[in-house]
Design a protein around this nucleic acid. Structure first.
Lengths: 140, 140
DNA sequence: AGAAATTTGTCCGTATGTATC
DNA sequence: AGATACATACGGACAAATTTC
């Protein structure tokens, strides 16, 4: 993928997402964030970009990093007693049907499907991932 | 050597060589691959590059890695594809985490997950497929 | 049971080359 | 030209799990 940076640069966007997870208690406090390589997978960003994002969070005192161990969320400011069970994160995207899905929907392998993904976390840990697939209807 | 990436990157080349050794049975199945440090010596590549190569093999389900132990070849798979048969409306099975799921759950690629699949039909037609993934908890 | 060595996991800093806005 | 971003690659260091002595 090229590098369109309309508006905010990616490292700021990523930092913002992580910041929100921390401030909402999805991650911390005290627990480890995903590793750099995991985050590169999740955000599909390069390591450099992830590290820039982390640098912002460190700078804001939201996280601390220990060499060889990882990056923690810091118990922040006033504890607003975050609820233990978090709101799911939701994502919607168009994916290509694999063999199994294609067979079920009776469509061609590679045909488009809409995938809704919800991530349910408890204490910041991913508890469950739910994906729903539907036929893709061309719009417009 | 600097880092020109003409043609194939080194980690792919290395992964290819290792893949061949595994598929030829020079290594597997079940036995440990050489350690990362051994491979850096053999291929004169940095550890990071070796680890990238290993990640490819893991992603293909050819090997699995355990912290502090090593990486071993996986007993080669014969997947009897059930494709033809009509699926039950609800299904539960254990699946291997792909890269995306592994990143979200913060587990190893290839680690076990429980997948619940439900098929929603309207007038006999598949309307929607819902899959839920959870961590697999070893019982013994 | 305990210490040391091995091995993987993670982070740090840096560097080069390419491509896009 | 400069900032952003990607992919690749190196070498070093500390942390944590496992194995060996």
């Amino acid at each position: 993928m090229p590098t369109p940076h309309y508006g905010q640069p990616r490292y700021r966007v990523i930092a913002g997402i992580l910041r929100e997870r921390i401030e909402r208690g999805l991650i911390g406090p005290g627990s480890l964030l995903p590793s750099e390589s995991t985050l590169t997978a999740e955000f599909r960003a390069s390591r450099g970009t992830i590290r820039q994002a982390m640098a912002l969070l460190r700078n804001d005192g939201l996280v601390a990093t220990e060499h060889g161990r990882g990056t923690y969320a810091i118990p922040h400011g006033r504890d607003c007693k975050p609820s233990q069970i978090s709101y799911p994160e939701v994502r919607k995207q168009i994916v290509a049907a694999d063999a199994t899905l294609a067979a079920l929907f009776n469509i061609e392998v590679g045909a488009r499907l809409i995938e809704h993904e919800s991530i349910i976390r408890i204490d910041g840990r991913v508890e469950s991932i739910i994906r729903e697939y539907r036929a893709y209807i061309e719009q417009r």
